[in-house]
Write a protein that binds this DNA or RNA. Structure first.
Lengths: 209, 209
DNA sequence: TTTTTTCTGTTGCATATGCAACAATTTTAT
DNA sequence: ATAAAATTGTTGCATATGCAACAGAAAAAA
């Protein structure tokens, strides 16, 4: 949005300036946090990738969110009275920054002027998050698996600027992300290949329409 | 979140303090804005209700978002390269506040100190919006119509604190909101009534489980 | 390396959901 | 008040999707 906003710089400041902020490292598949208690926690991915996961009562896994560098997540973004158990898992070795929402409104001991910047920069990160969520909703409101797949591929294609791109998910996880049955999705992918809409080599996709 | 934050007050300030901000009134069914151009517009509902609508190539209507007082919306929250035509329609007579994202970073002529507050308060509104979007995603990722209905009713029930509540939508629109076929949804609603899970009188629902 | 686990690719079958169509009812417009 | 338009309620039918199950490939662990 604002061309002058430098996420990397912001994160660098984050790391160094305020004592109310924690940074932790996680190995692949480690649990980063759970959304059970309401601690008003805000998290920012500094490196790596993490997924927000829900298992429902039928054992269906859904990837609610997939977060990469500079993405924000945390239970503060969820309504208190959700019935679901949500948890965040590191998909790669990851570095995550933690602070609580209250931090925004209270001064830290050092009285760092970092707080002044924090709020305004956070608005920027929140905005990005809203854009991501709207994209997700665009996908999920599509009526058919085919439409979901093609919409998602379209996004990935535009991000990479090319007609070819590598999926950030395994096919198993892609199905969970699009909230559809894996085998049904594989079937639809095969049809898309057979009908000449896409090419597919491993997890590399090429659009041919 | 922050108990001290007073949305009404914030909106009142918004209205009166800054010349970069526009307020417009819309009658029911009037188009509030479209998401075609990229003007980085941010809108806030001051009164009434508005819906963000998408029609896809098959003529399927989807209610992408339903916004009420103090909700934020606008094309700034959407990625630039979306293929869809989205537009916002007033569902009731509504009052909507408009400004551009740039407003946050430039001083207005009056040099109002309103800008200082604007950013930090906006963070609050953005946070609320993220919570709403996450709720929406919760619904949309549910695998069956029944689960979607019950999850949504559960939310409405908790909001009204009672087991009874009035739907904010017509049933036609509810189907569009849950992104399912209307007749299929009506069928599922009937089953839920027959099986004793809910009672249904007009657009008033009572949970009985 | 070898073993174990996870992922991919595929298919038959059951069914939930979408689609089309219509009458009855309610709401909105004239 | 009357006509027009939209919503609700319902059903038969077609099919897209979910489910279960399995073999082979790939990746991770030992």
């Amino acid at each position: 949005m604002d061309a002058n906003f430098d996420k990397e710089l912001f994160i660098e400041k984050f790391k160094n300036s305020c004592n109310r902020i924690q940074i932790k490292n996680f190995k692949k598949n480690e649990i980063v946090t759970t959304y059970i208690e309401k601690r008003n926690q805000i998290c920012i991915v500094l490196s790596g990738e993490v997924d927000l996961i829900r298992y429902d009562s039928n054992g269906n896994k859904t990837i609610i969110g997939h977060f990469v560098v500079s993405d924000v997540f945390g239970e503060v973004f969820y309504p208190a009275n959700t019935n679901n158990e949500l948890f965040v898992i590191a998909r790669k070795n990851s570095e995550v920054l933690f602070f609580t929402y209250d931090t925004l409104f209270t001064k830290c001991r050092r009285n760092c002027d970092f707080h002044k910047e924090l709020t305004s920069n956070l608005t920027e990160l929140f905005l990005d998050q809203i854009i991501n969520l709207n994209l997700r909703i665009e996908l999920l409101t599509k009526r058919t698996i085919r439409e979901k797949i093609l919409s998602y591929f379209d996004i990935l294609s535009k991000r990479s600027i090319r007609r070819s791109f590598t999926l950030p998910f395994s096919y198993t996880d892609l199905a969970d992300f699009l909230s559809v049955d894996r085998s049904a999705m594989m079937r639809e992918l095969k049809l898309l290949v057979d009908e000449g809409f896409i090419k597919k080599h491993g997890n590399r996709i090429t659009l041919t329409f």
